[in-house]
Design a protein around this nucleic acid. Structure first.
Length: 386
RNA sequence: CGGGGUGUGGCGCAGCCCGGCUAGCGCGCCUGCUUUGGGAGCAGGAAGUCGGAGGUUCAAAUCCUCUCACCCCGACCA
């Protein structure tokens, strides 16, 4: 991607609306812009990283045998009345009426919808167990939205729901999810702790949450798993017939990851004084080429390396703007692409280029022909968890 | 909802207490020339209903009333 043609908008100064470091950096590095309190637009750089989080989640979910679905955002009130949560959920749920005066809520979570789907399709023990998940926008009318995308009113969430024959099966499904969660967070570069939690409005028998810790020691929850038991299957009549033909309620579990919050949590951990320091797995681009000056030789070389790496399937951002060196270096640090390749007149005289990992202090210089292999090697290096 | 705070060109701010003349500063933006290893220089230029409404006054960014939006702390949560 040529920066000149890209919609990358960085902020030189700290926006006054943001206090929390991840929020500040997401705005400054051009990942997000606010539309209203607790409501954000994702810009290209932010969306690319968000998509990478989603991809990791999908891969790990699919490995457990869970299958992806997409449930509606708009939920009829009658469905929520079946479980009593239409009134229980209170002001937290955004509500509206259609032209006929029928009431709807914007889904803050999807137990009712998924249970309604499954009870309509599953009749026999032969169809169980099944685990379904989705990555969908959720709406919660928070008392006080804050910290940018950490606590917003509209946010992206992965929610999975397991349906089992009995308690033993449910425990197995639950444990499988917990294992997948550990893998997901590790692939995102985060050390997490798993611990017992309050199950709140979702309810159920037992729940555990996954928390990550920021540099400042704050711990801001990124995943939450619940053993629901038969709370929803009883009230919503999600039954199946066992081998003997007896009707039994399905035993459920539900498992959430705040996708947009996870992204913020990663930034809360992966940054320094100059900007973002993305783990390679989530970086919007893998390599930033930074060319200095407008000499034809410089441009040609940058162009050649850009094409060479792109042809190898690497994701490259080339800062080809007509900006001063200082601006380019500052922006490169701010947006935090993991590997920086500098093409400058000074180095080109000796047929060399400068290579530096965002997290490292020292730049190494190497012959132009060694650049691509060196980058390929760097991209293979594992990254530490934080 | 309780407490605290902010709203002035795109961004960050000063001015407000103590009303006064074409509303300033830094950055950014546009044009030209020069510059290119850490947020460049010179010259020229564009851009503001001072959040909104009402009031006081000869005169309001500034004083009064109402209102809206946003931020921070608390109760709630992925």
């Amino acid at each position: 991607m040529h920066w000149r043609e890209a919609f990358i908008v960085t902020l030189k100064e700290n926006p006054q609306e943001a206090d929390l470091v991840s929020h500040r950096l997401m705005l400054r590095a051009g990942l997000l812009r606010k539309l209203a309190s607790g409501i954000y637009s994702y810009l290209p750089l932010g969306l690319r990283s968000l998509r990478k989080v989603e991809t990791i989640i999908r891969q790990e979910m699919n490995k457990t045998g869970a299958q992806e679905v997409l449930l509606p955002v708009l939920h009829p009130a009658v469905l929520w009345q079946e479980t009593g949560r239409w009134s229980e959920y209170g002001k937290e749920m955004m509500r509206l009426k259609d032209r006929h005066g029928r009431e709807f809520g914007l889904g803050p979570t999807h137990e009712e919808v998924i249970t309604s789907l499954v009870r309509g399709e599953v009749r026999s023990y032969k169809q169980l167990p099944v685990t379904l998940y989705q990555i969908q926008t959720k709406f919660r009318d928070e008392i006080r939205p804050r910290f940018g995308v950490m606590r917003s009113r509209e946010f992206s969430m992965k929610d999975a729901y397991s349906f089992d024959l009995d308690e033993d099966g449910a425990v197995k499904s639950y444990n499988k999810m917990a294992e997948a969660y550990a893998k997901i967070f590790a692939r995102c570069g985060l050390k997490t702790k798993r611990r017992a939690a309050d199950s709140g409005l979702i309810g159920g028998k037992l729940s555990e949450e996954f928390v990550s810790f920021s540099k400042t020691g704050e711990e801001i929850e990124i995943g939450h798993i619940f053993k629901l038991g038969t709370k929803y299957s009883q009230s919503m009549k999600a039954f199946y017939r066992d081998e003997s033909g007896t009707q039994k309620p399905m035993v459920m579990g539900c498992y959430g990851i705040g996708v947009s919050r996870l992204l913020a949590a990663v930034i809360e951990t992966w940054h320094d004084d100059d900007g973002l320091t993305w783990p390679i797995s989530l970086a919007p681009y893998e390599v930033e080429i930074l060319s200095l000056g407008e000499d034809a030789e410089i441009i040609n070389l940058a162009e050649r390396l850009h094409r060479g790496l792109t042809d190898r399937g690497r994701e490259i951002l080339w800062d080809d703007r007509k900006e001063s060196a200082g601006v380019k270096f500052k922006d490169a640090d701010l947006i935090g692409i993991p590997i920086r390749l500098v093409i400058s007149p000074k180095l080109l005289k000796e047929r060399k280029a400068g290579l530096k990992k965002r997290a490292d202090k020292e730049e190494i210089t190497l012959g132009i022909d060694e650049v691509i292999p060196a980058i390929e090697a760097m991209l293979k290096e594992p990254f530490d968890l934080r």
